[in-house]
Simulated scan of single mutants.
Amino acid sequence: MESGRLDEVGTAPDEQAIQTTVALDGGGTDIARARHLAAGFLTRLQSEHGLPVSQRAMDVTRLVVSELVTNARKYAPGPILLVLRVTRGTVEVVVWDSDPALPIARAADAGRVGQHGLEIVMAVAQGFEAQREPVGKRITARIALADDPGGAITGRQPL
């Protein structure tokens, strides 16, 4: 089930969070679908809400979504829930899956083929959190929307 619009959800009396949610069934098109959803979400943030989204934020968000959904598909049976939420100038990428085992970043090894996804996410995100849930786990990565060293920002600046 994918929300067809950006849902505004109150997070505090003086703050609104903009979010979208999609349930993925664990099929072969999940990763591409999730990346497409992320790109569309950030594009709508710019066009409908006038929020600044740097090219770096766009690229990093798609990368983080891809890596987290790939890991969920690879290591957890069953459905995946992806939530994209904007609060306080960041986009939160939240991925829930049914496996309660928390991911562990492996030591850097340039000779290792594969299994670098968590390392990549932790290196590019401004925040990372993994929590067990009553069923499975929830992984959250935070990416600054206007973080683009040396690049341009699209949209209006927040007051």
Rank of each mutant, 00 (worst) to 15 (best):
H49F: 14
V53D: 04
W96F: 07
T70Q: 11
L84H: 08
L42N: 04
A72C: 13
L63K: 03
R56K: 06
V69I: 13
L45N: 04
L81E: 08
A57M: 02
T61P: 05
V94S: 14
D97E: 15
P77M: 05
A57L: 02
R88D: 14
V86P: 04
A57I: 03
L45I: 02
D59Y: 01
L81G: 03
V83C: 09
V64E: 01
E67I: 06
V86S: 11
T87E: 15
T43F: 05
T70M: 09
R88N: 12
Y75P: 06
L42R: 01
W96H: 15
P77V: 10
V86G: 02
R62P: 02
A57R: 00
V94I: 15
G50R: 13
R44E: 14
L81K: 02
V93N: 08
V83M: 06
T90I: 00
G78T: 02
E48W: 04
P100G: 09
E92V: 13
E48F: 07
L82K: 01
T70H: 14
V86E: 15
P79W: 03
V95D: 04
R85F: 01
R62A: 14
R88H: 14
R73S: 12
S98D: 14
R44T: 13
R73H: 11
A76S: 15
A76Q: 11
S47W: 06
G78V: 03
S66I: 00
L42V: 04
P100E: 10
D99M: 09
V83Y: 00
D59Q: 13
V69L: 11
T70L: 10
E48I: 01
T43D: 14
V65F: 11
A76R: 06
I80T: 13
R73K: 13
K74Q: 15
S66F: 07
Q55M: 10
V65W: 09
Y75I: 03
V64M: 08
L42A: 07
V83E: 09
H49S: 05
P77Y: 03
V95N: 10
L45E: 12
L82Y: 00
T87H: 12
R44H: 13
V64C: 08
M58W: 01
V60Y: 00
V60R: 00
K74D: 14
V69F: 12
Y75Q: 09
A57C: 09
D99E: 15
Q55W: 06
A101L: 13
L51Y: 06
V60N: 00
L42E: 08
S66G: 15
D59M: 06
G50H: 11
N71Q: 09
R44K: 15
A101W: 08
G89M: 05
V60M: 01
W96A: 09
D59P: 00
G89W: 01
R85P: 02
R56S: 07
L42S: 03
R62V: 12
H49E: 12
R88V: 02
